[in-house]
């Protein structure tokens, strides 16, 4: 009985069906353990966590400089009844691209080319945010003070939405952005 002290001499190895199951389960655990390092070297989707310390204000400066030099257009949107212009900024293939999360927008709109690789720097000006790319469903955590670098290669074209999936205050659910892939 599991509610009484076991009889003397209870210590012993598993036998029979129990031994079989432990063996099978252990093999499955080892397969799952090896799957991750395998995919790290062979797979195309990995979260390596590459990042650099950065003051939020400095990161905002970098984003603004990126917008000044690479802007190719703008989109007029309405947020709570007020008109607002969001720059559309094109990245140079192989180069650095900047995206800022702040309450409550992803800034600016990015324009990328299908099949090209970019180093996308993402950070926050204020709180923690969640970078979530739809309808792809790719998600990364964005923290103030951390320049999170995703080496990203879009493999499909069209317009993709970015939403925030880390709670960042009352406007969390209207925090959106966009990536255009040609």
């Amino acid at each position: 009985m599991s509610i009484q002290a076991p009889a003397k001499g209870w210590f012993g190895p598993p036998v029979g069906a129990e031994k079989l199951w432990i063996g099978v389960a252990l093999i499955w655990c080892i397969i799952m353990s090896l799957a991750m390092p395998y995919y790290h070297f062979k797979g195309k989707q990995n979260s390596t966590g590459e990042s650099y310390a950065v003051e939020p204000a400095r990161f905002v400066d970098r984003v603004n400089r990126f917008v000044e030099t690479n802007q190719v257009g703008e989109e007029v949107v309405t947020v709570s009844g007020i008109e607002k212009k969001i720059p559309i900024v094109e990245g140079v293939p192989g180069g650095d691209v900047y995206l800022l999360g702040r309450t409550w927008e992803w800034y600016p709109i990015l324009k990328l080319k299908k099949g090209q690789t970019y180093r996308v720097h993402i950070s926050s000006a204020d709180l923690q945010h969640g970078f979530s790319l739809l309808p792809m469903n790719m998600n990364f955590q964005i923290l103030p003070g951390y320049d999170h670098v995703l080496t990203l290669t879009p493999t499909s074209s069209g317009e993709f939405q970015i939403i925030c999936n880390e709670f960042c205050g009352i406007g969390h659910h209207i925090m959106t952005g966009k990536i255009i892939v040609e």
């Binding site: 309405t78 947020v79 469903n137 939405q161 999936n165 209207i174 959106t176």
Partner: peptide, 18 residues
């Protein structure tokens, strides 16, 4: 892709729709 901890999956009032 539906986020957790999110009030409005229609994103009503957001500048860029989703």
């Amino acid at each position: 892709g539906v986020p957790r901890r999110h009030w409005d999956v229609e994103f009503t009032g957001a500048g860029i729709g989703a």
